[in-house]
Design a protein around this nucleic acid. Structure first.
Lengths: 190, 190
DNA sequence: CGCGACCGAATGAACGTTCAATAGAAAGAA
DNA sequence: TTCTTTCTATTGAACGTTCATTCGGTCGCG
């Protein structure tokens, strides 16, 4: 992973927070600059345009998410335990980083996402995808289109986190466990 | 339901399509006017501002969605059949109306949604919410926070439709059935 | 005539982006 | 070391464009 200059990181983080609060169109470059503590022109030293900034911000957040998930995964667990661990740590990451969640959701539902190569997106998800795929192949998970199953699992983690954040229903660890169980009961075979 | 003047409807439908293609900031009022076949000023005869237009567009799409779902529901089915029917018709509605799906997703993930009163949102979902709630009370569904369960079910329908639309994996009726089964296995009790 | 629907050019503010100027660090020459 | 040169990082005022919104006016109906 490349080393990110301090100011570049400040710009990314500021953009992230502002977009969560105000959305894409509610976030002028002037405000980003102000929050990051740099001049407007400086942003253009690091990014070609506002679009580029937003596109890079997406890969930046993908990195943060993936790092968090992989940091939590240990060798030698059985499949089910690893599934729970994986689902719950994804969910927790979103809860602890609401700005990432809301930015990502806005991004993937915007026209930006179309410009984003699907391959790049999938390279990130590779470990996770293979985990699911192996579950299907080994007959632990329901036989089904793997990409489809992958997305169903991810989206449930998103949704749970969003309930927690938007409806101010605090999800306890126990409830997270329950939710993971619910998802598991859906995808496991039999 | 109020009677919508032709031009008003044309404006709403045009906005819907343009936002799906270009997002909120990629959709100037001038373009909306052009697509709807009206003058720019006319929009302001029906809507106070662009924001108002978008807010009203949301309730307009909610209506369309709800009508489609309720049109499909018949009396006298047992709970499970009704669940399947409900989940699948929601999914199919999204697949047949991609612009509604993408607009709604953009909307609920944008700052607009915060300004939207939660009560209004829930009044729309009332029938559906009560259906889920009664399932929990009668012990057919897993004992769990009802709002949480409601959202988990909805989000799975969203996600399935999005796979169909974005990844160009055509979901057959059989696969939809499979998916509904998967969701059902997750939420049913035991 | 009066009124509401409708038009579209004009307005003015907001915003992304540029660029000439500055500061400072690194490198080289003496 | 000290002076000179070069290159990069940074600044923020200025520019040009885009866009939401306004408003004076037209049309057609009762």
């Amino acid at each position: 992973m490349e080393i990110i200059a301090d100011k570049k990181k400040a710009i990314l983080e500021s953009t992230l927070k502002l977009i969560k609060e105000n959305g894409f169109h509610g976030t002028p470059m002037s405000q980003v600059a102000k929050k990051a503590g740099v001049a407007a022109g400086t942003i253009y030293h690091y990014f070609d345009s506002k679009d580029t900034l937003i596109m890079e911000l997406y890969t930046y957040t993908q990195h943060r998410l993936l790092d968090a998930i992989l940091a939590n995964s240990h060798e030698g667990m059985d499949y089910k335990a690893q599934f729970f661990n994986y689902w719950i740590s994804r969910c927790k990451f979103y809860i602890q980083n609401p700005d990432v969640l809301f930015f990502m959701e806005q991004f993937v539902n915007s026209p930006y996402y179309n410009r984003f190569s699907k391959e790049q997106d999938e390279r990130f998800q590779k470990e996770v995808f293979q985990f699911i795929a192996s579950g299907v192949e080994r007959g632990i998970l329901r036989p089904m289109n793997q990409r489809l199953m992958c997305i169903m699992i991810h989206s449930s983690a998103h949704s749970a986190a969003k309930v927690h954040l938007l409806d101010r229903v605090t999800l306890t660890d126990e409830e997270l466990q329950q939710l993971a169980q619910m998802v598991w009961d859906g995808v496991k075979s039999n």
